[in-house]
Structures are given as C-alpha cells and as structure tokens.
Design a protein around this nucleic acid. Structure first.
Lengths: 231, 231
DNA sequence: GATTGGATAAATGGATACAAAAATATTTCG
DNA sequence: CGAAATATTTTTGTATCCATTTATCCAATC
C-alpha cells in the first residue's frame, strides 16, 4: 500500500481485519507461492486468534483474486496463468490510462518535481533489491493514480497491483536491473509535462503493455495453471 | 446475471454461497435501499441457516462494493454519491471499451445478427417495464464482453454493472422508455460491423459516458451520501 | 426544557463445539 | 505384489455460546 498506510493508524481493528492485512502482506512478500494451501488454523495460531476471523478474511482475499476458495477444499494461493497475467496488464493499461487522463488537470510543476524525486528513489531502490524497487515502483504509479481523485478507480488499480506484485518481484530478480524501466517512466513524466491528457493516457497504456510481454516471458518457466494441475 | 446462470445449476453449494446469492439478488431487485441495514439474524432465518454463513457472505458483498461493513456497526446497503456513480461509469467506459477492442477479431456476421436480435429483445422488454429492460440491457453488453474472452475483465465489468443496476432501474422508471438507448446501441453494432477495433472502442466509451449524466440527473433528487448522513 | 450521564437492552465479533466432507492410511482380495 | 474397498484421520463448514461493543432509554442536572 503505497500511500494508504494511514488506515493502519487505528491499531485496534477487528480480528478479521488483522487477519486480512496479515495474509495480504505475506502474499505480497511472496511468503507463499501460487498453489500453496493456507491452513486456517496455522494462520489463526500465528496471529493469536481462532479460525473464524481467518475464514472471513479468506472470503475477502478471494474476492480480491489473491486466493482461490473451493468448497470443502480449503484456500490456496491464486496463481495466474500466462493468459491471466497478460489480461491483468490489459486491465491495468486502460484503468491507469484513465487515471492519468483524469489526473492531468491537477498536474503542476511541483507535482512533476515530486514524481521525478520518486523516479530517482525508485532508481536507487533498484540497486538494493527487488523488494524495495517494487514498493517504489508502486509508489510512483500510485502517486499518479492518486491525482485522479477517484477512490474507486484507485482501489481497483491497487487490487490489480497486489495480484501481479509477486510476479514483478520474480521478474526483477531475473533481470537484475531493468534498464528500460527508468526511460519508460521518464517518458511518462515527459508526457505529463506536455499537458496533453489523451497523449499521456496513450503513453501510460503503452508503458504498461510494454512491460507485460517481458514479464510473461520470465514467468513462463514456472508456469503453473491456476492451482498447479488442479491437484 | 445475464449469461452466468449456469453457475446456479449446482444446487447444493455451501450455505455461504446460498446466502451470498440470496442477498445479491435481493439487492439487484432493489428490495433494500441504500442505507438500509441488513440484519444477519433476519436474513439467516429467511434462508434457514445461522448467522455465521451470512456474516461471511457480507464480507464478499463488501468487497464487491454492494454493502458497507463497519466494525461493530453492522452491514448497510452501499449507496453511491453522484461522484461515485459517475466514477463507476468512467471505469465502465474504459473497461468495456477494452472488451470491445479485444472482441473485434471474433465478430462475424452471425455474431452481429445475434446482437441485433438481442437489441430487438431489449427494445421489446422496454415496453413491459424496467426490470426486463435492465436485464436485457445487461445481456446485450454482456454478450459483447464475452467475445473478448477475458474472464477477469468480464468479472470486473459484471461487478460494476451490479453496483449501478438499481440506479439504472430508477432511471428507466423515470424516463418511461429511453428513446436514445436504441439508437446508441444500434450505433454500437454499426461500429462493430466496421471492423475497426479502435473506432468501436471509442464508440463504446462515448456510449457509456453519454448515459452517465442522464442517469446522474435522475438520481440526484434522492441523493444520499454514502450511508444517509453517516447516521 | 435541553443536555448529559448512566443503566439497560440489543446486536456484533469471536471462540468453542459438533457434524459433514475430504484426504489419508490400512486392510483385504484378486 | 497391486488394486480396490474400507477404516481412520484430518480438515472444513455450521451452529451455539459468551464477551464486548454499541444503541436505547430514562433520570438527573444545569
């Protein structure tokens, strides 16, 4: 969550909320791999609660597309097929494109400088490892989305990011330091500076769709159909 | 659900699933109004189960954006502000636009004729009442989306439709029979016939964004901020 | 008379307990 | 020795129960 840490300030939420965040974070960090089973009792014990709130958290995570829930068969970490991964990028492309277009009226020089700072930080983070880079990358995209001032749109985009994040990590670890990333994001800032909303939308769409094939290529080796062969 | 009734064939799902579908349908039919409280015990008694599966269903419905769940304060039917309603149409415009663009390769003469049949059926349903028309309208849009062969995209679009459906009903009931609707959808078919994917995408985007202001206008009178004044 | 405080009632959240289903291990028979 | 059938274990799904929180109502005070 790039900029919505504020929600975590209220420490004493419900147990379900705690379970939801706990599992979500674990998934983001790649602690579980696609196809892995999430055992309610184990997770409940980890956080110190009963199975019930964990079960409820599972429902929400399933709605987010992060896990798959089958009746009487438990909860497994959702894996994306190559097609689904690509589809997710297609959806991101139009939604983030929309976000950029709507954000344009609120782009000023201050904001552009802030984005350049974030780009610089992303670049630096890229040297220390995939974890930091992915977080910074999310932050950069999240900043632009936030300027659209569309809460539901942001929520959707964040959900899509959460699904592909583990794959971004794998990708980053393979290619060491993606050189193209800096140029692409710099081009994005340039497009924003142009002031042409439609143009910026197109640049964002192209940027996201450009990433997809590279990522797909690196993910293909460990290609697992949804739950590793349906067990 | 226009075309996914197949999922209801398996009668003996879990109780949670039954509760989920039950409440979803009730919301679609406008049985509850935005801001209404959903009492777990009452719903549980209706279907003949305990509160627990109903509680779990609430979580999923909340993720879908159909209800709002606040800790220790129960479950209320989600209402959209005018801004949120408009935002939903913006998201629909780019996602359904994408769906049309991707569907284009699979559009042939047979498919065009089928769409014309659906348009005709939508027209006829419009005379009998808003219920039938909304269902047929969904069916028409759903058919196009299905041709994109993108399951996750379809799911997202269906979720957005579910949220705005009650408002579509209100709108339809106000304007008797929206004359523009027939022309707009016919133009959509014409765009598909042209074979130009980008053009069809644009027509779809325009069509959806055209609807939004009309609908917003009719919804404004009963304008309720999310939960009728936060109670 | 309005507002605040507290007591009571209601509803929610969560844990335990139990029943049903699935997965696993074991035995039996070919 | 292998396959099928059965018994056992594990795990999931649901109901009931209890604790905590919130809402309601009434009284006391300003």
């Amino acid at each position: 969550m790039p900029s919505s840490f504020s929600a975590e300030l209220r420490a004493s939420a419900t147990a379900e909320e705690e379970a939801y965040r706990h599992i979500q974070r674990a998934l983001r960090l790649g602690r579980y791999k696609p196809g892995d089973r999430l055992i309610p009792e184990d997770i409940a014990a980890e956080i110190g609660m009963s199975r019930m709130p964990v079960r409820e958290a599972f429902r929400r995570l399933a709605s987010d597309g992060l896990v798959v829930l089958r009746p009487n068969r438990g909860c497994i970490v959702a894996g994306l097929t190559v097609d689904e991964l690509y589809e997710t990028f297609e959806m991101r492309s139009v939604l983030e494109g929309l976000a950029v277009r709507l954000a344009m009226p609120r782009i000023d020089e201050d904001e552009l400088e802030e984005l350049e700072r974030l780009l610089e930080r992303m670049e630096r983070a890229g040297r220390s490892g995939s974890n930091d880079w992915v977080v910074r990358h999310q932050e950069f995209h999240g900043r632009i989305c936030a300027l659209s001032q569309r809460p539901k749109l942001m929520h959707q985009i964040a959900a899509l990011h959460a699904v592909i994040e583990p794959y971004m990590r794998i990708w980053f670890d393979y290619v060491e330091k993606p050189l193209s990333a800096r140029d692409e994001h710099a081009a994005l800032i340039a497009a924003l500076r142009s002031g042409d909303a439609r143009h910026a939308e197109q640049v964002m769409q192209d940027h996201i769709l450009d990433t997809a094939p590279i990522l797909v290529e690196f993910v293909t080796p460990s290609r697992r159909q949804t739950p590793a062969g349906e067990k």
